[in-house]
Simulated scan of single mutants.
Amino acid sequence: MNTQAPLRDDTTSATDDRPVKLLCQDVWKVFGEGAKNFLAKHNGAPTSEDLSKAQLVGAVRHASLEVRRGENFIVMGLSGSGKSTLVRCLSRLVEPTWGKIELDGIDLLKASPDELIEIRRHRMGMVFQHFALLPHLTVLENIAFPLSVQGVERKTREARARKVIELVGLSGREQFYPRELSGGQQQRVGIARSLAVEPEIWFLDEPFSALDPLIRREMQAELLRLQSVLKKTIVFITHDFDEAIRLADRVAIMKDGEIIQIGTPEELVLHPATDYVAEFTRDVQRSKVMSAASLMRPVSPSADYGGTVGARDKISSFSARIVGVRKNFLVTAADGRPLGEVTPDDVIDILADRDVAKEARV
C-alpha cells in the first residue's frame, strides 16, 4: 500500500481564497468485524499488513481533501479504487469508520440522525449513475417528490419543480412518464430532482457513465452550463479522465482506497507524483490540459503578435489559430496585463507530443 500522505494542491490553494465548503480529514471506511476498535488500536494508521492480518478490508484509507465553495472537484479512479465509497462517506450514506468530515464547519460524524436528515434534505443534492426515477410519477411529480418529503405544500413545490424543469431544458415534458423519455432526458430529470431542493453541495456519482457517448457529452455541457448559472459546490465521481479534464477545477486520483494525488488536470499530467498517476494520465493529450501560462516565454521586445490568449486558455483552444498565422501570441492576465508569449513552434511540439525545453519558458 502506498503510505504517503495525500498530496495537496498547494499552488491552487494558495491562489484560491474561496472558503472551504467540505473538509474530509483522515477518513477510513473499513469493512469487517471490530473495524472501529482495530483503527483505534492502531491510532488510525494501520498498514496494509495490519489490515490483512485482521482480515479487514480498507475500502477508503486515510483520505483527506478540501473542497472550496463553488468548486468542481472530481474524484476519479478505476473500478474498486474506493471513489464511490468515499463520496457516500462524505454524505454519510455509508458510515465512515474513522476520521472527520465537516460541512461549513459542522462535524457531520457528530450529527444526530434527525440533524443529518435535515442536512441531506435541505443542503445536499445527489445524482447517481442509475436514475432511480419513480415509474408511476410524471416528470413534474418526480422532480417535486423530494419537496413533498420535506412537507412543502403542493403549489409551492410544483412551482419550484417547473422552474428547474425549464433550467434543465425539459419544458413541455412535465406530464411525461420516465418510460417515455430518452436516457439523456431521464438523467436530466434526475439532475432537476436533486436541484429542486436548492442544495448547497452537489454529489454526482458517475451520473453520465450509462449514457451513449454523444448524449454523455451533451450532459457534460449541460452540467457546465448549469454550474455557470448556479455556482454550486460539486463533488463529481468518474473513471474517465477526458470527462475530468472537461469538468474539473481539481482532481483527486484514488487507488486501493487511497488518494494518491490532488491537483488540476494540468498538474496531474505534467507533474505526476507517482508512477501510477503517470500511467493513469499517459494517454491524455497534453494540449487539452496545458495552459498558455505553462508554455509561455518572456515577452519579446517590439514583437509583432498574431493574436492574444488568456493565461488559462488551453493550448488546444488556440493551436489552429497560432499555427495558421505562424506568429507568436501574446499571453495576458485576466486584467489584460501582458505576461509572456507563446510561439507556434512550441505549440507544434506539444501537438506532436515532443517536450519543449523548460528553460525557454517563464
Score class of each variant (00 low, 15 high):
Pro298Leu: 08
Gly99Thr: 08
Gln185Tyr: 08
Arg250Gln: 10
Leu214Met: 02
Asp275Arg: 13
Phe128Gly: 12
Asp114Leu: 11
Leu140Ile: 12
Met1Tyr: 08
Pro338Thr: 02
Phe280Trp: 12
Phe203Val: 03
Arg179Ile: 05
Ser148Thr: 11
Met290Gln: 14
Leu23Pro: 00
Asp313Leu: 15
Asp275Leu: 10
Ala248Thr: 03
Arg69Cys: 12
Asp26Ala: 07
Phe131Val: 13
Val149Asp: 03
Ala132Pro: 05
Ile245Ala: 05
His122Phe: 03
Val30Gly: 04
Pro207Ala: 00
Ile201Asn: 03
Asp26Asn: 13
Arg286Tyr: 04
Met126Thr: 10
Thr343Glu: 11
Tyr276Ile: 10
Val299Leu: 13
Pro265Met: 09
Phe73Tyr: 15
Leu7Asn: 04
Ala35Leu: 05
Ser13Met: 13
Leu214Arg: 02
Leu51Tyr: 12
Ala132Met: 13
Arg157Asn: 10
Arg326Gly: 12
Gly77Val: 07
Met290Thr: 14
Phe31Asn: 09
Glu66Arg: 14
Pro46Arg: 05
Val356Met: 02
Val67Met: 12
Ala352Leu: 10
Ile315Glu: 08
Ala59Gly: 01
Phe145Asp: 12
Glu66Thr: 13
Ser148Asp: 05
Lys255Arg: 15
Gly77His: 08
Gln285Ile: 09
Met290Val: 12
Glu153Arg: 15
Arg162Ala: 01
Met124Arg: 04
Tyr305Gln: 07
Leu137Trp: 11
Phe128Cys: 10
Ala292Thr: 08
Arg326Lys: 15
Asp256Trp: 09
Gly172Arg: 06
Lys288Gly: 06
Leu22Arg: 04
Ala333Cys: 07
Gln261Gly: 13
Asp283Ala: 14
Gln55Lys: 13
Ile260Asn: 08
Ile350Cys: 07
Leu23Lys: 12
Gln25Met: 02
Gly340Lys: 01
Tyr177Glu: 03
Leu204Thr: 00
Leu295Ile: 07
Glu66Gly: 03
Leu351Arg: 04
Asp50Lys: 05
His62Gly: 13
Lys36Gly: 04
Asp104Val: 03
Pro199His: 04
Gln150Met: 11
Asn142Arg: 09
Ser291Ala: 14
Leu211Val: 00
Asp16Ile: 10
Asp17Phe: 09
Gly34Tyr: 02
Asp283Lys: 14
Leu90Glu: 04
Leu133Ile: 06
Ala303Trp: 10
Arg154Val: 14
Ala334Lys: 09
Arg18Thr: 10
Leu109Asp: 01
Lys314Leu: 12
His122Gly: 06
Lys100Tyr: 01
Ile101Cys: 07
Leu170Lys: 07
Asp353Tyr: 02
Asp107Tyr: 02
His136Glu: 11
Glu158Ser: 10
Ala352Ile: 02
Arg88Thr: 07
Asn37Cys: 09
Ala311Asn: 13
Thr156Ser: 15
Arg216Trp: 02
Ala333Ile: 04
Thr264Lys: 10
Arg337Ser: 13
Gln186Ala: 10
Leu51Ala: 09
Gln187Leu: 01
Asp256Arg: 14
Glu115Met: 00
Leu211Met: 00
Val30Ala: 03
Val189Ile: 12
Glu218Tyr: 05
Leu65Glu: 06
Leu147Arg: 06
Asp104Gln: 06
Arg92Gln: 13
Pro135Trp: 09
